[in-house]
Design a binder for these strands. Sequence first.
DNA 1: ACCTGAACACCGTTCAAGT
DNA 2: ACCTGAACACCGTTCAAGT
Lengths: 203, 203
Amino acid sequence: MATEPDKVRKRGRPAADRAGLTADRILTTALALVDAAGLDALSMRRLARELGVDPMSIYHHLPNKAAVVSGLVGLVFSRMRLPESVPDDWAGQVRAWVDAYRDLTRRHPRLVLQIVTDPVAVTQASETINGPLHAALTSAGVPADKIDACAGMFVDFANGFALAGLEPPSPAPAGKPPQSHFDTGMDVMILGIRALTAGRDER
Amino acid sequence: MATEPDKVRKRGRPAADRAGLTADRILTTALALVDAAGLDALSMRRLARELGVDPMSIYHHLPNKAAVVSGLVGLVFSRMRLPESVPDDWAGQVRAWVDAYRDLTRRHPRLVLQIVTDPVAVTQASETINGPLHAALTSAGVPADKIDACAGMFVDFANGFALAGLEPPSPAPAGKPPQSHFDTGMDVMILGIRALTAGRDER
DNA sequence: ACCTGAACACCGTTCAAGT
DNA sequence: ACCTGAACACCGTTCAAGT
């Protein structure tokens, strides 16, 4: 089979109909590629192939590969599903927010390293997650100078847990589903917060 | 300046004196390279240049680049400094072991992602760290079915913390060094363990 | 303005050939 | 047994050229 002649792309600006590239389309395609084939499969050339475009076209919308990767992380963060109704108690609130964050990393397991590592993403996280998390910890009675550290504890734990991979072997699918290691960790940390604030104005 | 003629390497087996390559020498050189220039700088070709050797020579000692990286992680783990004298109390023991683990990641910041991620390394960690950590938690009175989860909590936190980067901005170097976020997290988790085991046979 | 193709300086790895 | 060099199939990115 010879090279198909109808696969040759025209050069120059595309006709008005053929929807031009956009950063959005690039990132959406890249995310699908990474979710399906892993981060190693993400190359500018392969991404371009996926888009049906010359590799260099991408550079007119994103400055380089690093921008593609961090754009990916931003896209994932923008899709975070916030809990619809938060519980009344602070412990329930903390769980709800950490769960929302954790779901993010679970939906894109091949991207966790970048998510957890990207400094810009961490800032994004601060704005959307840490706010409510801080509020919950404040209402728990955690002293102001320990709020950041306690919020960080939950996030760091969630990150470390996500990286450590999926749940442990879990040999017994039958019977009561044993409490997951994640949940146990959360319980202990919440007990710790409670102990930290014992005797303070907790509600 | 032309290519220097005396830099030309002989081919074939080296004379007995010129110490041949070994996996050890390759990994030690690779670790120095990564510590100094980052993981991105580690390529088989550059590593070979550093070793004064043809790129392909490396393949006679390590099967591929992945083996080099995981060898690196193993090398780092083998250098873990165990605490010389562990405290009597379980909380002190837990701190000592987590600190030893954390030092590992601090000594090789450009390798943390691999350390935290490498499944073989995690197994190594299980053997050298988790043993004493489990023992400390057992003596704390943690029920047997929660030991793994609690040990994991500390390790996951340490991993997540290491990844989140160095300490926060830390604007105030003067005065009392404020308790680090890491220490606060450890305190809260230990409080949590204590609360978990309240009323049990703790010693 | 946006897209393209050739070109540059790299990669990891296979394989046949040297000693 | 160990080392080497050419070769293959890739990379990210720059730059001049197309429309």
